[in-house]
Simulated scan of single mutants.
Amino acid sequence: MSSGAAAAASEAGEPYRLLSGTEYVVGRKNSAILIQDDQSISRSHAVLTVSHPETTPSQSLSVPILTVTDTSKYGTFVNGSKLNGTSVSLQSGDRINFGVFESKFRVEYEPLVVCSSCLDVAQKSALNQAIWQLGGLVVNEWTKECTHLVMVSVKVTVKTICALICGRPIIKPEFFVELIKAIQSRQQLPVHESFYPPVDEPSIGTEKLDLSEHHERKKIFSGKTFIFLTAKQHKKLGPAVNLGGGQAKLLTEGRKETSLLVSPDVCVVDVGLTNSQVPGSDSVRNWTDSILTVLQSKDLRAVPEAEIGLAVIFMSTEKYCNPQKQPGGK
């Protein structure tokens, strides 16, 4: 059995995916999970239900509960123990036998942790509802536990970069609606590739954005250190650098560690326009200017923050995030 929440796969290998808020009767006749040709199976042999535990915000990653209730004559067995008309909560890996012959199932839990980016309120609400039914969880921030990123159209956000690095699918919300329909009708499940959102990102131009999984993205920043000059940029982009195998460091005002800045594996991230918007920060501006001057004196450049995303998208740190290459491909 499997679903975002819970699942049972018979020993023969046929999976049953279970949705939250639905009762599944296991039995010999007119049942959601039909077991024929087994005389020890009652007409209504057992009931499976998936429910969400009551959670506090700090426990948001809790796994839905799959319960089996025995209603049979010849017994339901969990890991060899007979239930005798009682209910028990099942864990991933548990084995269930319905009756006394070969009707054996294994419980599997497939985590479904969905992060969304750039959705409006109505789209978020619909997504929450679908993921709840699938026994999954919607989170606001990307972590390595996330299994999907949902967008209506692809823009290069930090979440997009992180999802690409982790090799997780970026898909339209409709995917989950179709997934529920397929589970309900026991049809073939939809494939991610049919639900890639259109790319709406001027910075990429007309080049094709490959959303499929590429293992080289997981190590794109391996061996590189990114030096951030503002806490805001460090907080925003540091997680993406770390996920890609790099190191993210925040240099505090006044420190200039020149030897560190001019190493070939170090990218100093350009502060862009943000500095001119900070009131009364002449000292900060002078400090960042002096760092950029050090780089220029060594024929190096600060790397615009957009290049962190572009390096991931196009799987190249030769063209992007390369302090020795001047922009414009010199």
Rank of each mutant, 00 (worst) to 15 (best):
S116G: 07
L134E: 01
V138K: 00
S87N: 09
R95L: 13
S81I: 13
L134W: 01
Q129P: 06
F77G: 01
K181A: 15
S103H: 05
F105T: 05
P111V: 03
L112K: 02
T143Y: 06
F105S: 04
E193Y: 13
P197N: 11
G205S: 03
V177L: 11
F176M: 02
L134D: 02
V152Y: 08
G135S: 03
I171F: 03
G205A: 05
G75L: 09
K82C: 11
V199A: 08
G135F: 01
P202I: 04
V199K: 03
F98Q: 00
Q133H: 09
V100G: 06
M151F: 10
L179G: 03
E110V: 07
S125T: 15
K82V: 11
L83A: 09
K155T: 12
M151K: 04
W132F: 13
L134N: 01
G136M: 00
H192Q: 11
Y196A: 07
T143V: 11
G80H: 10
S72F: 01
C166Y: 07
I170W: 04
T160M: 03
A126F: 12
S194T: 13
K144Y: 13
L83D: 06
E193L: 13
H192N: 15
I131D: 00
Q184I: 11
E201K: 01
G93P: 01
E110L: 09
V139G: 02
Y196F: 14
F105E: 00
T157L: 07
S116A: 08
E193P: 04
P190E: 07
G99Y: 06
D200K: 09
N140G: 13
V88G: 03
S92W: 06
S185E: 15
E108V: 09
S125Y: 15
L83Y: 13
S103Q: 08
E178A: 14
L127T: 11
E178R: 12
R168P: 02
I165R: 02
N84M: 14
G167Y: 04
S81V: 14
P190M: 03
V191G: 10
V78S: 03
D200F: 06
C166W: 05
R95P: 07
W132G: 12
T157Q: 07
V114F: 02
R186F: 05
M151Q: 14
Q123T: 10
S116C: 07
P202C: 03
P197A: 09
F105I: 10
Q123Y: 11
K73M: 15
Q91K: 15
E178S: 12
I180G: 00
I96A: 04
F101S: 11
E102A: 14
S89E: 15
S72P: 09
I165K: 00
S81L: 13
L127Y: 10
S89M: 12
L179N: 01
N97C: 14
I96Y: 05
K159H: 10
P197W: 07
I180Y: 06
A130I: 06
K208N: 10
V150I: 14
G135W: 01
F105K: 02
I165H: 04
P111I: 00
L164T: 04
I161W: 00
K144G: 12
D200P: 02
G135D: 01
I161Y: 03
T160L: 04
Q91H: 15
L137G: 03
E110I: 12
D120F: 10
Q184T: 12
L189W: 05
F175H: 04
V138I: 10
I96K: 08
K155Q: 15
R106P: 02
